[in-house]
């Protein structure tokens, strides 16, 4: 099998050996692709098709009415639409950058360094991993108001930065980096920081990408922080705004919700396309075990 493509990731030509793979992959891919087809179709459905029973998967007479309604509603509110977009961008970028930085640093320390209380710290992370987020909302609210960051961007950013799942994932990948590499770097006189950004970070790129995507979609779609930790409209996020528009109770709400979810989904898609092409193909050549 290896002779077909050599070191190239994708074979250039179609080969009949590939047919069995397609036989499995294509039908499953169709199943897996259903949500995206649905989300696109749903956004363009006119009112009568949205409420049709039994519901139709594909749109019959596509129209832009939902988007028109959405933008009309957005234009008539006191806070400009761009403000929500800006808020969401600031919060999301800050959380993704901070949490990737913190998680990779912590993962490096937990996996490759020696210090006291290492295991208890990891156990705490595992406990946090399992804990139901709903249960800590009220204590968190109290903490945030005590620190005095209620109703600011920090109220969005700080509670979301510590993602236990992210640290857990990344740590497992750092475990796979061979110790011999690090020892070699130490022999050459590299300090901890240098090892961190010259060896660890390049080698765990796929984990970083996965973690970043996870964090991104969590934060981008999060309406809880806007709901609980902020009161003034000026610092609320796009997801929250979209949610209020679409749950306003009007008949148009359903259509606007469909259009809004398509709009909210596009950044996710773009991010993933960028991440996956730059990261997935470099993995084959990394020194990871």
């Amino acid at each position: 099998m290896a002779a077909i493509g050599g070191t190239r990731v994708n074979p250039k030509k179609f080969h009949k050996n590939q047919i069995p793979f397609y036989l499995y992959l294509v039908p499953i891919a169709i199943f897996m692709g259903m949500p995206i087809v649905y989300i696109i179709n749903h956004a363009f459905k006119p009112m009568d098709e949205l409420f049709a029973f039994p519901p139709r998967f594909f749109v019959q007479h596509p129209s832009l009415i939902n988007f028109q309604n959405l933008f009309q509603a957005a234009g008539s509110s006191s806070i400009p639409f761009s403000r929500y977009v800006f808020n969401s961008l600031v919060v999301t970028v800050a959380v993704v950058v901070l949490s990737v930085l913190i998680s990779t640093m912590a993962a490096f320390a937990l996996s490759k360094m020696k210090f006291r209380f290492k295991n208890p710290i990891f156990e705490i992370n595992n406990l946090a991993l399992m804990f139901v987020a709903t249960a800590v909302t009220i204590p968190r609210y109290l903490t945030i108001s005590q620190i005095g960051i209620l109703d600011t961007y920090w109220a969005h950013i700080l509670p979301q930065v510590a993602m236990p799942v992210c640290l857990f994932l990344i740590k497992q990948f750092v475990d796979g980096v061979p110790n011999s590499l690090i020892e070699a770097a130490q022999l050459e006189g590299a300090g901890s920081w240098k090892i961190y950004y010259k060896i660890i970070l390049p080698l765990i790129k796929p984990a970083i990408a996965t973690g970043a995507i996870l964090v991104f979609q969590n934060v981008w779609n999060n309406i809880e922080t806007s709901n609980l930790f902020t009161t003034s409209e000026g610092v609320k996020t796009l997801a929250f705004y979209m949610n209020t528009l679409s749950t306003a109770g009007s008949v148009q709400g359903q259509g606007m919700a469909a259009a809004a979810s398509l709009i909210m989904f596009i950044p996710n898609l773009l991010l993933f396309v960028v991440m996956q092409s730059s990261v997935m193909n470099t993995m084959a050549h990394s020194g990871l075990k």
């Binding site: 912590a106 320390a109 210090f115 710290i121 705490i124 992370n125 946090a128």
Partner: peptide
């Protein structure tokens, strides 16, 4: 080790451990 893990510890203590 502590330098690298410190930011994470601070975050977890404030927003997870204390809340829990």
């Amino acid at each position: 080790g502590y330098v690298f893990i410190a930011p994470w510890i601070v975050g977890v203590c404030i927003f997870f451990l204390y809340a829990m």
